[in-house]
Computed example of a mutant assay.
Amino acid sequence: MSFSQKILDWYQIHKRDLPWRSTVDPYKIWISEIMLQQTRVAQGMPYYHKFLENFPTVHDLANASEEKVLKLWQGLGYYSRARNLHATAKMVVDDHKGNFPDTYNGLKALKGVGDYTASAIASICFDIPEPVVDGNVYRVLSRYFGVDLPINSTQGVKYFKDLAREVMDVKNIRDYNQGIMEFGAMQCAPKNPDCEGCPLNESCVALKENRVFQLPIKINKTKVRQRYFNYLVYLDGNKRTILEQRQGKGIWQNLYQFPLLETEDLIEHKELTQILNGKLKDAVNTVVLYNKEPIVHKLSHQHLHTRFWILETDELNSEGIPWKKVHNYPVPVLLADFIKTFKI
């Protein structure tokens, strides 16, 4: 029995009942694929349902405000995905009359749609024999065939794409692509693969050579940057605060935050007041450190050592926002957690 047939047989028995499995609507498949990049299925499922409730069609998403899109995305991270999602919806509506392209190249031309997403939509929605290669597929192919090329090298990316094309099931590409991704997520998992019950175990090179936990190989190119954030949480006598919208192309673009002071290292009360002296927008009565131990928020390329400082003042200027309305704004999950726990 061939590699692809074993994957298909396994999938028919073990596939999870997921909402996007019961449709070939490219809009719904596209939403699920973008949402599940760098997000676990269990975490992404509620967001998927909420997104479709608010934006049942690509026209609804295209016509929505960016603020609403970001608010519904809040907590999923990698917010560029949400901004690209919004931009792509507008492209589909404006340039394609609301219909997704039905070719791999047409799909890949959409903003935020790379090889993987184009291949997934093309195969699942239009039955086009285009192989998908995501993290799960890299792992399955690398282990089964014993490939030690780094999956994030130029040579590795090309090799695995060619290998995926060679072993795919052309006649049943829709189930095969979903099957091999599911197989990698559940059977050939990163940390606890079920090698004993695996239908591929008799011919798996990594299992034979005791290299299951050595593969796949990935070059570590990322140097983690340490950053020190001090959020200034203003509060006046009318229970109002200040939120600012992040500008530029950095992390959390267009999300809202409390005024931010970034420093070279952790600072204490005296240093903060010295830095702020003469810079404060409003006269401040007291400055209180909310969390002595910094919250370390870990992103892929940087760790944010974060403290929240409560600045009490008599009355804020016209920029003041009632505290009870703060939860309406799209904010990074780091701030959303603080807002939930801080009581005034």
Rank of each mutant, 00 (worst) to 15 (best):
Y234W: 14
Y234H: 11
Y234Q: 06
Y234S: 03
L235G: 01
L235C: 04
L235R: 14
D236N: 04
D236S: 06
N238R: 15
N238S: 15
N238E: 15
N238I: 01
K239F: 11
K239W: 03
K239V: 02
R240Q: 15
T241A: 10
I242K: 15
L243Y: 14
E244R: 15
E244K: 15
Q245L: 10
R246I: 13
R246K: 14
Q247Y: 08
Q247F: 06
G248V: 06
G248I: 03
G248A: 09
G248N: 10
K249V: 10
G250A: 14
Q253R: 15
N254H: 13
L255M: 14
L255K: 03
Y256H: 11
Y256A: 03
Y256K: 04
Q257I: 05
P259H: 06
P259G: 09
L260W: 11
L261D: 10
L261I: 08
L261Y: 14
L261C: 08
T263I: 06
E264M: 06
E264N: 10
D265V: 09
D265C: 08
D265H: 11
L266F: 09
L266W: 10
L266H: 10
I267V: 12
I267H: 07
I267F: 04
E268S: 10
E268T: 03
E268V: 05
E268K: 14
H269D: 07
H269E: 15
K270M: 04
E271N: 04
E271R: 10
L272H: 02
T273K: 13
T273L: 06
Q274W: 00
Q274G: 02
Q274P: 00
I275V: 13
I275A: 08
L276F: 08
L276K: 09
N277Y: 12
N277V: 01
N277P: 00
G278E: 12
G278N: 08
K279Q: 14
L280Q: 13
L280Y: 09
D282W: 07
D282E: 11
D282K: 00
A283S: 15
V284R: 03
V284N: 05
V284W: 06
N285I: 01
N285M: 03
N285V: 03
T286D: 14
V288G: 02
L289P: 07
L289D: 04
L289I: 14
Y290R: 09
N291W: 15
K292L: 11
K292M: 06
E293Q: 11
E293K: 11
P294M: 07
P294A: 07
P294D: 02
I295Y: 08
V296H: 02
H297S: 12
H297E: 05
K298F: 00
K298L: 03
K298Q: 11
K298A: 11
K298T: 09
L299I: 04
L299G: 03
S300N: 07
S300D: 05
H301I: 00
H301E: 04
H301Q: 07
H301F: 12
H301V: 00
Q302A: 13
Q302F: 00
Q302V: 10
Q302Y: 00
Q302C: 09
H303F: 06
H303E: 15
H303I: 01
H303N: 15
H303T: 01
H305T: 06
T306K: 09
R307K: 15
F308Q: 07
F308I: 06
F308D: 02
W309Q: 02
W309K: 01
I310T: 01
I310E: 04
I310P: 04
L311E: 05
L311D: 04
E312Y: 04
E312L: 00
E312Q: 12
E312K: 05
T313V: 02
T313W: 00
T313C: 15
